[in-house]
Design a binder for these strands. Structure first.
Lengths: 191, 191
DNA sequence: AAAAATCTACCTACTAGATGGTAGCCATAA
DNA sequence: TTATGGCTACCATCTAGTAGGTAGATTTTT
């Protein structure tokens, strides 16, 4: 038996990330999953409920990814590069970041959703701040680097590059930005 | 006599930048400008026409701004900081970048509009690349910095920070990222 | 200068289709 | 037997866009 709810989440995510939240409808989703529009309401009572579920699932996947990066990569720069590669898959599939897409429509978003988005980004910033602070401590990062400010900058850069390069040069463009970002964190070459 | 077309452009820009392109309607705009919905079609035949006019006007304002920055600031870092301050006004007013907002809905955008957006961003990247190349030449930037890659990174960072800090910490958060960005471009302190 | 024609900018009234959401029915599986 | 997960059929509202009209300004012709 198929897991309709999971299919709805998967297809809705693709639609939202490609066209924006207002830009996708239950009608589109129904077509993508081949059930009737009204049946979606059985799984997600309102569109807001669906959006919240999307963010929750997306957030959970990132939780796992961040933990995996820390486990696999000992070096701060390698961790940030690995983190950036998650955004890269978005570029490769032509999909924006779910939370960035939703954030764009901030003014019309329900408060609960807006709060979830803020939590999502705050979590990433906090994670990066720890990664950067550790890198500063062990000398693998440019001396004088401010972990708090740089953490915000890293999220901003990757989110911006995903938005930008999905439109412009695709993964080739994204890789340039990711490389420049990592380079800017490294200590100056001595020699 | 009032310039209805200009008022329509101004209000539509605010609406789009706050709620997304699909998230605003001729109905909203009519209310904001206090004319009837049908009358908007007299000035902008279709919603796509309106979007194109919005981008054109936005682009023209940035053209002027970029020229003014080059004229006023001799130093590369100062130029990038001044460029960043234009995004800051967006954060302060709670408005996203018009072109970023539109870019989010890429998959449903008319080709002509998508092409305009690409031209907009390409222009910014090209401008920054020149600024950075000059800064490299006169030694005011970190040695070894790649102007082409860094230009993309700068646009990405500022666009991302605008998206992010409009949701999170406002101008205080944006300023942190802008400072970290400029710091990352400077030559390493000797001492 | 007067009259006629055209243009501008708005209006009311409308359309066809999409939107999110509801009510209630029915088959199947636990 | 009872929940589950679909369905059809609906609803009010909103969507971009059209048709056709009107008052007033501007331009053209006489």
């Amino acid at each position: 038996m198929r897991d309709t709810r999971a299919e709805l989440l998967a297809q809705a995510e693709i639609l939202v990330r490609g066209r924006g939240y207002s830009g996708f409808s239950y009608g589109d989703l129904a077509e993508a999953v081949s059930i009737r529009k009204a049946s979606i309401h059985h799984h997600f009572r309102t569109k807001t409920d669906l959006a919240l579920a999307l963010v929750e699932a997306y957030d959970a996947r990132y939780d796992a990814a961040l933990a995996a990066i820390v486990a696999a990569q000992p070096d701060a720069i390698a961790r940030i590069e690995a983190y950036g590669r998650h955004y890269l898959t978005g570029v490769e599939n032509g999909l924006g970041c779910l939370c960035a897409v939703l954030a764009i429509e901030r003014d019309t978003l329900p408060d609960a959703l807006r709060a979830e988005l803020a939590r999502f980004f705050d979590k990433h910033i906090a994670w990066l701040e720890r990664v950067l602070a550790e890198g500063c401590a062990d000398g693998s990062l440019r001396p004088g680097l401010d972990p708090a400010a740089t953490a915000r900058m890293v999220v901003a850069t990757l989110e911006g590059a995903l938005m930008l390069e999905r439109l412009l040069a695709g993964s080739a463009g994204f890789r340039l930005t990711l490389a420049a970002l990592c380079e800017s964190l490294r200590p100056a070459r001595t020699g």
